[in-house]
Design a protein around this nucleic acid. Structure first.
Lengths: 355, 355
DNA sequence: CTGTTAGCGCATTCAC
DNA sequence: GTGAATGCGCTAACAG
């Protein structure tokens, strides 16, 4: 509870006026090298940080943050990220920050391309990016890099970019967790299966791949072997997908545990219950409304949840830090924990918000 | 992003001056009934909330929060609650809030009694209570009620008190979770055991009891029966406890899964590994340093964690809300989720803090 | 009882 | 280039 240093104190210590300190703090220029050096030394010594809230009162400019994420409904994964974002915006409503969405359809690469193309001209102070399509995201980031506009990733991190911060989960570790849970939920002699997404190149494919690698690694680390089959679910052709899945199960009657490496576990769960198949355990990702329902009625055994609200919430906090204190943070990559959700602890997660 | 209403706007709308609005906002008195009514109506209509940060700039008084919790080291349960508290205090350092600890020894009822007795005379604006001993806590709360000092519970909620907010977990549900995990980790024909604390009346006994009830209920709900033995661990007499435990295991060789209903699972784990007993699965509570170590080396199978940092963090936020906006919140009881931590997701939880 | 004024930490504007 | 002056939302002290 040491008394906070004020801008006037800094000015006095450096032998200049408050105005000069302010010019340096927000590098507005028009400062002599001598003053610059003197003030910066005092700034470093004291570790001074101005009060963003009182600053906001007199600050004229307002920052505009573009949120580039897929469209989603309330209870879905991206909807939860959005909730966290809006929650944080509300909490920091006294800071002069506006935001605007640049939505895109996560199943449509052209929609993403269009949406992202418009962003650099929206005059953003910063951009929060929920990346789905790798090359589209890289193109956007390159433009932002050129303009010196900071960007922050949620959910996934795209290699080769220069984000100011990232909030995501270690998908490889998530894959290991799924492996362990499958192992727990099924007898050792049962066969297992992994379901990915049908389409490649889009839809957080990199996440799915990392999860797959982790899962595979987990089973390789065991001192015994388990049989693991592979198949896919197609969201776009549900009827065909349904037939494929039933055929797969008929062909592989020994499969008693299935990992779905995305949020569509409920689709599989619904198909199984519609066909009165009750002895197959399913694990998938993301605490969406549909998955919640299936956990409750027991058709889904576990969900891995990566705290989307918290990701959104933190992304805004990081944005504010980046824009207001213009310092580079040492640890830019923040990993969310992977919560294991089963029927017994599900109710405790339902009302919990970001912060 | 609707433009915020300011105190001057309220004054204009109600036909009074800003000074009068301020007097009403902080019920400082010296206001006519007519003005009071007019302003309150506008306040309600607009849903106005003053900016606590700019307020703090001109506010003379400073609030003093007493933190009444058990002493603990950094990595322990109460240490984590304390981290959350200090983290929040740092984040809100611009608001005029001071804090002071009123520590007590969670194993010594007299220490608690002494510590709590001094609190009402410390001139607190609010008190955050980590309750261990029920009657001592009730006595304190009664005094605080009389003085009109708000208090907030973390970790446990004591019945018959009137807290402004509570942050805890549903211990009964936690017990069910432990039951489910025990069931998953052990073969159906194995016997199970539950270890509580030796001393009664203290040490979050109410938490342990609720956990026990939930666990029992879980096993009663199964359509088959499992044998569950009971025993205790004594922290105060470790050597004797060690012998008791080994004796217990010798007497009950069929026991292959043990639930420890508090944070001392590592004690049991250490005893088992010292005696080269490897086929017993242990589950306990709280992500302390010792338990972390045992999860890592595999001697502990799972931990239930109730986000102590988050509890502490939220307790401070609630304190600030209570003191600064003096409104009663509808939902005073906030339940933390119970995270299931196993070897595979442990590393993801290690660095995560409150917010 | 009430409106006015000064001042908090800060950003901005404007003389110098 | 720089300091002094003004205003932001708010509280506090003062005069009526």
């Amino acid at each position: 509870m040491a008394k906070q240093v004020k801008i006037k104190d800094i000015a006095k210590m450096a032998g200049v006026s408050a105005g000069t300190v302010d010019r340096i703090l927000h590098n507005r220029g028009n400062v002599s090298a001598a003053s610059q050096a003197a003030v910066e030394r005092v700034l470093a010594e004291t570790g001074y940080r101005y009060n963003i809230h009182t600053s906001a009162v007199s600050l004229k400019r307002t920052y505009k943050v573009i949120i580039a994420i897929p469209t989603a409904r309330k209870g879905e994964y991206w909807g939860n990220i959005q909730s966290g974002i809006e929650h944080a915006m509300e909490e920091y409503s006294d800071v002069n920050i506006e935001y605007e969405y640049a939505y895109y359809n996560q199943f449509d690469i052209f929609s993403c391309r269009n949406s992202f193309a418009a962003i650099p001209d929206m005059d953003p102070s910063a951009v929060i990016i929920g990346a789905t399509f790798v090359s589209e995201t890289m193109i956007l980031c390159e433009k932002l890099d050129q303009k010196g506009i900071p960007y922050i990733f949620v959910d996934a991190v795209i290699e080769g970019t220069h984000p100011a911060a990232t909030y995501s989960s270690d998908q490889h570790k998530c894959g290991r967790i799924v492996g362990r849970l499958l192992n727990l939920f099924t007898p050792r002699d049962a066969e297992l299966a992994v379901f990915g997404s049908r389409r490649i190149g889009n839809e957080r494919a990199s996440n799915s791949l990392a999860r797959m690698a982790g899962l595979t690694e987990y089973f390789q680390g065991l001192n015994y072997r388990r049989t693991i089959k592979e198949s896919k679910i197609s969201v776009l052709e549900p009827e065909e997908s349904r037939k494929d899945i039933l055929q797969f199960l008929q062909d592989n009657p020994a499969v008693k545990g299935i990992a779905v490496l995305n949020s569509r576990g409920y689709i599989l769960a619904d198909i199984l219950s519609a066909n009165a198949i009750r002895d197959i355990r399913i694990i998938c990702f993301d605490l969406t409304e549909n998955n919640t329902r299936c956990i409750q009625d027991g058709t889904l055994s576990a969900i891995i949840c990566q705290r989307p609200e918290l990701q959104g919430f933190h992304a805004i906090k990081a944005t504010i830090r980046t824009l207001l204190y213009n310092i580079q943070e040492k640890n830019r990559h923040h990993l969310m924990p992977a919560d294991i959700i089963i029927k017994e602890n599900l109710p405790m997660y339902k009302d919990i918000y970001a912060e």
